[in-house]
């Protein structure tokens, strides 16, 4: 079951790349069929991706120490890719803007590709990780990261299509609004992620906040996005500036996720074996 899950994942990884190519053809050649194929392939891939995660979950029970598949770097990368694809599809469904896929789906692809370089063995949980708060923590954080990731993709797209200082035409206005909306989704979920993480830390160690590097970086990320949300209330802060801001924010996310492993601390178990 574990082997099947891993094999499925290889297909899923490259299917996201394939879907990106279809969407790119759709954009460049302007043939509707490509877009439709891209959408269908992405939904099917997400379904297979979901199946792979569920299989891994079941496999851990077969091994006798069942736990949700959110416990190490490999599993979190796989889940991150899943949340990115899901959020993209929701936005496509709401806005019908298929071009976004060209920027958003590669993130899912790279997340999974990076996962491939990690040890995929299912490991039992160390005592501190056995908590439902941990599951809530990981799910909310990664959904939040996906919000920021898609916002980043939108920001790149905004800059790629001209990057007006103040958005004027319809597509730029929509992108500007979506950059903000996805940051909002990310911000709410990151907040929930930090809160559930604090509750977990409090039940495991008796302190809800210890300023360990990963915690601190999640707070830094949170502060940057809080500043972004407030920049809206200062004149002239839209369009290109918000796009740049969203890109900086996502760099903070990436550092919180990967960079911190080089700094040590409580979360170093997530550094991957």
């Amino acid at each position: 079951m574990e082997a099947l899950s891993n094999k499925l994942l290889v297909w899923v990884t490259f299917a996201y790349l394939g879907a990106t190519v279809l969407y790119l053809c759709h954009w460049v050649i302007k043939a509707r069929a490509f877009g439709l194929l891209g959408t269908i392939l992405t939904w099917l891939t997400l379904a297979a991706h979901t199946a792979s995660i569920v299989l891994r979950w079941l496999a851990s029970y077969q091994l006798g120490f069942g736990h949700a598949p959110f416990s190490n770097l490999f599993e979190s990368l796989v889940f991150f890719g899943w949340t990115l694809a899901l959020l993209y599809l929701i936005i496509e469904w709401r806005t019908k803007l298929r071009q976004i896929a060209v920027f958003a789906l590669p993130l899912a692809f790279f997340s999974l590709l990076y996962a491939m370089t990690k040890e995929p063995d299912i490991q039992p949980l160390m005592p501190a990780l056995k908590s439902n708060w941990l599951i809530a923590h990981v799910i909310t954080c990664f959904l939040g990261y996906a919000g920021f990731g898609v916002s980043f993709a939108l920001a790149i797209m905004y800059l790629a299509i001209g990057g007006a200082a103040i958005p004027q035409e319809k597509r730029a206005l929509t992108l500007d609004d979506l950059i903000y909306q996805t940051v909002v989704v990310g911000f709410i979920l990151l907040t929930a992620g930090i809160v559930t993480g604090s509750i977990w830390a409090n039940s495991a160690w008796g302190t809800y906040w210890t300023w360990d590097p990963k915690e601190t970086w999640s707070l830094i990320t949170w502060l940057v996005y809080a500043a972004l949300l407030h920049s809206r209330f200062m004149r002239g802060w839209q369009g290109r500036r918000i796009a740049f801001f969203s890109i900086i924010g996502f760099l903070c996310v990436l550092f919180t996720y990967f960079g911190v492993n080089y700094l040590g601390g409580l979360h170093s178990y997530a550094a991957g074996q």
Binding site: W217, L219, I220, L223, V224, A226, A227
Partner: peptide, 17 residues
């Protein structure tokens, strides 16, 4: 508040290094 939020973010980096 914009300046303070960013100042807190920037200075917090020090303590992680």
């Amino acid at each position: 508040s914009f300046a303070l939020l960013l100042a807190l973010a920037l200075t917090s980096i020090l303590g992680t290094i």
